[in-house]
Design a protein around this nucleic acid. Structure first.
Length: 373
DNA sequence: CTGCCGGGAGTAACCACATTCTAAG
DNA sequence: GCCTTAGAATGTGGTTACTCCCGGC
């Protein structure tokens, strides 16, 4: 499904991975500055292992998102090498992504690869390439990507764990759906949102200290944000009349709970989210019946490709690790007494000890400092 | 082939409370 | 507009209970 469209939409060109300049078959994985050439793993190993001079050629990984440009930044959170364009695009998607720490990629030299054993399955799969260099997408990925392109009519099914085994609105969509909301919230309350959560030093009362944030540094950050808002607004011009900004309740809960990285939700789902609360009983749901589902065919090929690409990238880089937003709360939670894992009430003695510690600390420092990590 | 059982994996819920947010005065 | 106050909301981690899946019989 996607293969045909991805090949057909690009006007005959391959919009995904750049092919190796040497073998013209496999997807390139590194860019050699000295040779100004994009090379696949095999050709890189072969070319740069040929002699000592060649082995000293500085190469950089190709962007893992577009796979078409040399990576310029390494996102530590995603463990992904990204070109400047993709970096800007991905990390402007939402406030959480913006917090990812990125460092300039250092050139690599020497032999990058061990003995060539042919492309590993995982790598092949990861890059959606076959050994012949053709794009392939597994059925599972097709399904997931399709869930991107479709909407997720059962995404608000939080209270119903059992989706009848049908995960159409399950993990993937939950994961994917948040960014636009984040962007919406950010767009709606840009100043408040950012001032409260993402800027400024921790307050002196020693309360919640937000986990350190790495920005693009200095004044660029503000400029960056403004640019991001601008980009977002451009994106929203698609459906300006939708009440997509006024979500609350379970949606905002999802946002706060989902500290993992998030992806981009198809525009169509934004409008659907507002009616999802009124969805009929489960047994009457028919995804492809009379409900006003925006089918993929309504998307332009370019939109489709863009979404699939974003989906791929986010799937590749997503992490399910919990992100601690408030280190002080973590500290409190860790020191809090528990009974069978549940927080337990502190005894009077413990409270007294705490008060003694806190009062002595205040006397010494003038501040009630909460340990933070 | 079907049904039952046990083990493993995954996940929601629960708890207390300091901190933050919001609205009202 | 600014300050204060009260109440609601939020977030935090370890354990438990529950569901689901899979393999063996």
């Amino acid at each position: 499904m996607l293969k045909e469209e991805s090949t057909g939409a690009g006007g005959g060109g391959n919009n995904w991975a750049r092919v190796c300049d040497t073998c013209h078959a496999a997807a390139c994985t590194v860019y050699c500055r000295a040779d100004s050439a994009y090379l696949c793993a095999g050709c890189d190993a072969r070319v740069h292992a040929a002699n000592r001079v060649a082995s000293r050629h500085e190469r950089v990984w190709v962007c893992e998102a577009c796979e078409r440009a040399p990576a310029a930044l390494l996102c530590k959170a995603d463990a992904a090498s990204l070109c400047t364009t993709c970096d800007a695009e991905i990390h402007s998607a939402n406030p959480l992504a913006r917090r990812h720490q990125r460092v300039p990629i250092l050139p690599i030299s020497g032999c990058l690869y061990g003995p060539q054993e042919g492309p590993a399955d995982g790598d092949t799969e990861d890059r959606f390439m076959t050994q012949e260099g053709e794009e392939t997408i597994s059925e599972e990925e097709e399904d997931e990507a399709a869930s991107w392109l479709l909407l997720n009519p059962v995404k608000n099914n939080n209270n119903n764990q059992n989706n009848n085994g049908f995960l159409f609105g399950g993990e993937v969509d939950e994961y994917l759906d948040l960014v636009d909301y984040n962007s919406c919230a950010e767009n709606q309350y840009p100043d408040q949102y950012n001032q409260q959560r993402y800027s400024g030093p921790p307050k002196s009362y020693g309360g919640d200290s937000v986990v350190p944030i790495q920005y693009g540094e200095g004044k660029d950050h503000q400029q960056q944000q403004q640019q991001q808002y601008h980009h977002f607004q451009l994106g929203l011009e698609y459906e300006p009349s939708k009440s997509a900004y006024s979500y609350n309740g379970s949606i905002s809960q999802s946002v706060s709970m989902s500290s993992m990285d998030v992806g981009v939700v198809p525009e169509s789902s934004m409008s659907e989210m507002s009616i999802s609360h009124q969805r009929p009983p489960k047994e009457t749901i028919d995804l492809f019946s009379s409900t006003p589902i925006q089918v993929p065919s309504q998307l332009s090929p370019m939109d489709r490709e863009a979404r699939v690409l974003r989906y791929r990238e986010k799937k590749k880089t997503r992490k399910f690790e919990k992100t601690i937003r408030y280190a002080s709360r973590k500290a409190y939670a860790e020191t809090r007494p528990r009974i069978k894992g549940r927080f337990a009430k502190r005894t009077d003695a413990e409270v007294e000890v705490d008060q003694m510690f806190s009062s002595s600390l205040v006397a010494e420092t003038g501040y009630g400092i909460v340990p933070s990590f």
